[in-house]
């Protein structure tokens, strides 16, 4: 298959369709609009359903319905819309339904702006909605990964019967890069637990209610066991020049791309710098950070926020090494040059 120069948002949709996604329910919001717009073009042609809902609240509950029906279903949104979807995501996790939710992060809080931020980390990784649950959170850093991690996301969502959030930002959604698409598309199939209006699935129930405390506790512990399993089997990260690194940067998404430039610039100045890029934010690659803490002198976390992931880095490093933080927010993107300056000022 030829490479295509394509926007991250559009690559994400093509990856979804190739993964067998046959339902998209969404609501317009910048900077995630290309996702719904591409889905409106491609998903009906692939025999699926595209529907623009009346709100994000309705959209995520349509996702609940599509997933209950056994269809690989997705939605996409950004900050304010994600806040509205948190209710539904909690229900989806509680009812153990698979789905993929793309959050193309923008500036917050409130209406904020439409420029890129990474300020929804807490919301995505720590819950957002009510109750003891986690979404699995994937953080692409290129148009290629917008496609690949969405494709993977559907498999993980089915494997764990759990919502998967693809946590990207406005830049990744808008930028164009060459993408090679998966060559073996997934065929849609109805899982045996779904409710599809046939005699075979008549005994099935989709629900998140467990009225008795013991029953609910058992259910929550079952969810927790899934998350523990995901920690073992699904934690993904990229090491970039960390082999001999004394200064290890930690950043995800678009920031990780900038940090690669920073690593190169510092290496040219004789500083042994490296980068750990979490690919899964939940499960978080804490074991790898702990390992690197035995070797590196210092960690330096960069985020497009006032510091959210840095908390998980500090938890992983357990105080064994200093963890510096540099963040830009409001839609400002840190340049490699300013990060280098920060490094010289603080390290």
């Amino acid at each position: 298959m030829p490479k295509q120069l394509i926007k991250g948002n559009e690559a994400l949709v093509k990856g979804a369709v190739l993964a067998g996604c046959r339902a998209f329910y969404g609501y317009p919001i910048t900077p995630a609009n290309e996702i719904a717009e591409s889905a409106a073009v491609y998903i009906p042609q692939a025999g699926g359903v595209f529907l623009q809902a009346e709100s994000e609240v309705a959209a995520i509950n349509m996702v609940y319905g599509g997933a209950s029906a056994g269809v690989r279903t997705m939605t996409a949104s950004s900050g304010p819309g994600m806040s509205l979807m948190c209710e539904g995501i909690s229900y989806i996790a509680g009812a153990e339904l698979p789905c993929v939710i793309a959050n193309i992060m923008r500036g917050g809080p409130g209406l904020g702006n439409i420029a890129p931020e990474q300020s929804d980390y807490f919301q995505a990784v720590k819950g957002g909605g009510h109750g003891c649950y986690h979404a699995l959170v994937l953080a692409p850093a290129s148009a290629q990964e917008m496609c690949d991690l969405t494709f993977l996301g559907f498999d993980l969502a089915d494997k764990y019967r759990n919502p998967v959030i693809v946590l990207a930002d406005g830049c990744l959604g808008q930028m164009m890069e060459p993408v090679e698409f998966p060559t073996t598309p997934r065929a849609p199939r109805t899982p045996e637990w779904a409710v599809d209006g046939t005699a075979a699935t008549r005994p099935n129930l989709i629900s998140s209610i467990y009225l008795q405390p013991d029953d609910l506790e058992k259910h929550i512990l079952k969810l927790e066991a899934k998350y523990k399993r995901a920690h073992v089997e699904e934690t993904r990260w990229e090491n970039y020049r960390t082999d001999d690194a004394e200064l290890v940067f930690v950043g995800y998404g678009i920031v990780a791309r900038i940090l690669k430039s920073v690593v190169e610039k510092l290496r040219m100045q004789g500083i042994k710098a490296g980068l750990l890029r979490p690919i899964t934010l939940y499960p978080f690659p804490a074991p790898e950070l702990r390992r690197l803490a035995g070797q590196a002198q210092q960690f330096f976390v960069v985020e497009m926020s006032t510091g959210q992931m840095v908390e998980d880095v500090r938890l992983a490093v357990e105080g064994r090494r200093p963890v510096e933080f540099y963040g830009r927010c409001g839609g400002n993107i840190p340049t490699a040059e300013e990060i280098v300056e920060e490094v010289f000022a603080h390290v």
């Binding site: 609240v57 509950n61 349509m62 609940y64 319905g65 229900y91 209006g197 008549r202 629900s207």
Partner: peptide, 14 residues
């Protein structure tokens, strides 16, 4: 019958 229990108010969307 096949059963799906849903969030408050969201039955029409589901």
């Amino acid at each position: 019958v096949g059963n799906v229990q849903v969030a408050h108010g969201r039955a029409p969307a589901v």
